[in-house]
């Protein structure tokens, strides 16, 4: 058995395929590509596949990770991406397949890019908002209670650019220990600044504890 890590992008309209649907799509895609993948054992065997981190509906991504296994220890990874891409629905593109370097649990941060259709008008307000030192967000706990938390300390890094539209690059905690969803911060900001403003988020990288791309 050989562990294999697949890296792919999810672009264009594929952003409207939910995480659950993406899992189904991937299974079928792998079956179509006719790769010798490993199935779980037991009464109801299913194709083994694990994702690094669910992607919210509506987001595109430049850097997604799914782990699978090949039955054959010596299986080559040459041509795997090509085979997968030939069998992918629109918007799914595989760009690397390799043996995992780190465990998926080493995922600590994710980098996002948000683009606002604002004509560049929101940049200053957003900058102020993100550096204000306190961003309280309402979050539902597992028990269903609503809790207010301050996510300002969680913002690892951000940068802003304004042209025809304001673009925000932001790094936030992601993974088993802690995850902060960028859309929560943005929605909070827009609810005060411009509730009608349309924006789009792309997850650009998944990072390990050293803030290096998870490999």
């Amino acid at each position: 058995m050989k562990n294999v890590r697949l890296f792919y992008k999810k672009t264009g309209l594929a952003r409207f395929v939910s995480h659950l649907d993406t899992m189904r799509c991937m299974t079928r895609l792998l079956r179509r590509a006719n790769l010798d993948v490993w199935y779980t054992e037991g009464f109801n065997p299913h194709l083994y596949i694990t994702f690094a981190m669910p992607l919210s509906l509506g987001m595109t991504s430049e850097y997604e990770i799914a782990d699978i296994r090949f039955n054959d220890d010596g299986a080559t990874l040459d041509g795997v991406c090509e085979k997968l891409n030939e069998n992918s629905p629109e918007g799914f593109h595989f760009f690397a397949a390799s043996e995992p370097v780190k465990k998926l649990s080493e995922l600590k941060f994710a980098k996002y890019k948000a683009e606002f259709s604002d004509g560049g008008a929101l940049k200053e307000k957003l900058e102020k908002f993100l550096s204000s030192g306190e961003i309280s967000i309402e979050k539902k706990t597992k028990k269903g209670e609503i809790k207010t938390i301050d996510v300002a300390p969680d913002i690892e890094k951000f940068s802003l650019e304004a042209g025809d539209e304001t673009t925000l690059d932001i790094t936030l905690p992601a993974g088993n220990d802690k995850t902060v969803k960028p859309e929560l911060i943005i929605n909070k900001f827009l609810s005060q600044a411009d509730p009608e403003c349309y924006y789009k988020i792309t997850r650009t990288l998944l990072l390990d504890g050293e803030k290096m791309p998870l490999k």
């Binding site: 309209l13 594929a14 939910s18 509906l57 629905p89």
Partner: peptide, 10 residues
């Protein structure tokens, strides 16, 4: 459920 309007399926 926007996916239902997207097309692009295999």
């Amino acid at each position: 459920k926007p996916g239902r309007y997207c097309g692009g399926e295999i």
